[in-house]
């Protein structure tokens, strides 16, 4: 009998734990983001051909030139990427060096995208089969990484940028530059 009672109280405790877990998860906003596990680690080796004729391509060496940079992963076919154009422009105006990787894109589409939404990028590499995106641990477009002068990934922003993110990214850039 004692063991039955112990077992039952064990069940009650287990149930209480499950209940607490459910309640906790229910009370918090759902976090669906898949973050890169490479924060604090070097950018993987890659060399991408230019995505458009007007800009040079992008390689790991370009990210190790001593200057901290923003690395924007985008695509011309992605609506939120167009939506974050003003924030990227603001970042560029405030001195950020922004390089980009265009995912699964055609040169003419990228160039039309830049004409239409503005061009804050100094380099754009073409990642036609998402190879570099996978190597970076990026799970979608758009995403913005902060990479320091030694090519170490410092920060990752997932999804489109909002006005409040501009200051955060500038701050991250400043820290990466120190």
């Amino acid at each position: 009998m004692r063991s039955v009672r112990l077992f039952l109280w064990g069940l009650v405790i287990l149930f209480a734990a499950v209940f607490a877990l459910f309640a906790l998860q229910l009370s918090r906003p759902k976090d669906d983001l898949v973050r890169s596990a490479l924060i604090g680690k070097p950018v993987p080796e890659f060399a991408l051909k230019p995505a458009v004729g007007t800009h040079p391509g992008l390689s790991t060496a370009d990210l190790r030139d001593g200057q901290p940079k923003l690395l924007n992963v985008f695509a011309s076919w992605c609506v939120p990427c167009a939506a974050e154009a003003p924030q990227l422009a603001a970042l560029e105006q405030q001195g950020a060096d922004i390089v980009a990787i265009a995912i699964r894109d055609r040169p003419e589409d990228v160039s039309a995208f830049l004409d239409r939404y503005g061009d804050p990028f100094s380099r754009i590499g073409a990642d036609d089969v998402s190879k570099v995106q996978l190597a970076l641990g990026s799970s979608g477009v758009p995403e913005t990484f902060v990479v320091d002068g030694q090519g170490i990934i410092r920060y990752q922003h997932i999804g489109e940028l909002h006005d409040k993110d501009v200051a955060i990214l500038l701050e991250q850039l400043r820290e990466a530059g120190a």
């Binding site: 992605c78 699964r104 894109d105």
Partner: peptide
């Protein structure tokens, strides 16, 4: 609808 159709054919 968010991630509209991308323009490249699928990877090989």
């Amino acid at each position: 609808p968010l991630a509209a159709q991308d323009s490249l054919p699928p990877a090989p």
